[in-house]
Amino acid sequence: MSTTLSYDRLSEEEKHSQFMERIESGEKIEADDWMPKDYRMTLIKLISMHGISEIMGALPEKEWVPKAPSLRRKLGIMAKVQDEMGHGQLLLRVAEDLMKPMGKTREEIMQDLFRGDLKFHNVFHMPAPTWGDAGLIGWLVDGAAIITQTNMLKASYGPYARALKRICAEEVFHAQHGEAIIMALAEGTEEQRALIQDAIDRWWESLLMFFGPASATTTGTSKQDTTIKYRIRTKTNEELRQAFLDKYIPRVLSLGLTIPDETLHYDKEKQQWVYQQPDWNEFKNIVRNNGPKSKDRLDLRITAYENNAWVREALSPDGAVV
């Protein structure tokens, strides 16, 4: 602890510099601690988007829950999608506590989502038309998510770091769940192999987009500098994308699958992957809820939320009927 003085007597600037000292020395910030408004807003934006993406991310996979092709797969994917909802729960609780001083609750988070003010990850706007997609989401989309989430395990904000610790522990199961589906398909019939190759071809661009643009000049917005400054994350978008390519390209190729980018190669000198840039204008378009499945998934979420409103009203402790 670097502070012994009464907090109330400190000026905003003194509080700010003490705050920066604390996070730079590796201290964790807790929900009720003083924090710069910029820090709070950055966290709210990051964590509410992360949380709601988990909730929306359950939807493309949800399609395959009742359809999974064996008892074991049905159980596995139920548990996996349940975890996504569970991760959403953890993250939204963290975001909700940050929003509380502003009088906001989960109700506002949901309404923000429905109005289109709260965005969710680009990958969850995409269709998942086959069982191959169910496998690919578990394998590569979760793989990408693991890379970004482990990058924030030491985040300066304690509640987020603790939620991520729980989440990452479960992601290990998700990674293996995805690999199990993919392995069965890869070692299966021609038709089964085609299911994964089609899914890779369909998802490749979305996977590259997952990490966001390399710099703000690409799309006009990027929070990466702020999040690095505040010790929320350590690596840049491009470093994360490179780490993903490092880990997963050899695995994809080892199964005899191909990546739909003829220009893709490893530059030994620069020690990085060179790849065809995805269409970043399309990325902006997708995250503004203009992706192929954006409307359907939002509709599904809105329908479910409104359809159950009577339950929440009925059990609201102060919800006396007038």
Partner: peptide, 11 residues
Amino acid sequence: MTNNGREFYQE
């Protein structure tokens, strides 16, 4: 009407 179910969300 009620409070829109917002009080359902107790911590």
